[in-house]
């Protein structure tokens, strides 16, 4: 009887301790990031795997390094790549990539003999249709080339992440 009363008093004390914890958290700063207004810091996205992108060539920076060898197409477990070889040269005519099927495993990036593929960091990609998820990577590369024509460093698969920092503007 007395033990039960003592247990209950201790129990009520434990409830007060719990309330003190939530009281502290009530006045502590918010932890979440309010997404459309703010986004996470850039360094959190450094190694994030977004949809694939084609890297730029070492010498001709407006060209892809892809030689249409189809190794990535064979390696892909989700069958999400479609590379068509060009008629005159080795470089591809079209490079279609179905992001809705991609599992971001990295098999294509690792198998590529020329390092033509890399993961981008597009975390805020939103579409309303499935068709919009089929990406034309050559078009994407052209757009990036038009934005920043020349990179100072040779862009390999890890250094192409921050183009804005390493751009030399052609005067």
């Amino acid at each position: 009887m007395f033990r039960a009363i003592w247990d209950n008093i201790k129990g009520i004390y434990s409830l007060l301790v719990g309330m003190a914890v939530t009281w502290d958290f009530f006045f502590s700063p918010r932890y979440t990031i309010h997404y459309p207004r703010k986004v996470v810091e850039r360094e959190n996205l450094e190694n994030y795997r977004g949809p694939l992108e084609l890297t730029r060539g070492k010498k001709e920076q407006d060209q892809t390094r892809c030689i249409s060898c189809q190794l990535c197409v064979k390696a892909c477990p989700g069958h999400c790549l479609k590379v068509t070889k060009g008629k005159e040269s080795k470089s591809p005519e079209s490079w279609l990539y179905d992001f809705s099927l991609c599992c971001l495993c990295g098999a294509c990036v690792e198998v590529c003999p020329t390092g033509a593929l890399a993961f981008s960091h597009k975390v805020y990609m939103v579409t309303t249709t499935r068709e919009a998820l089929i990406l034309d990577l050559l078009k994407d590369l052209k757009e990036r080339v038009a934005e920043t024509p020349l990179l100072v460093e040779a862009p390999d698969s890890t250094a192409s992440q921050e183009p804005s920092a390493a751009v030399v503007k052609e005067a």
Partner: peptide, 9 residues
């Protein structure tokens, strides 16, 4: 521990 484990409920 304070918030949950020791909680009497």
């Amino acid at each position: 521990k304070d918030l949950v484990t020791d909680n009497v409920i």
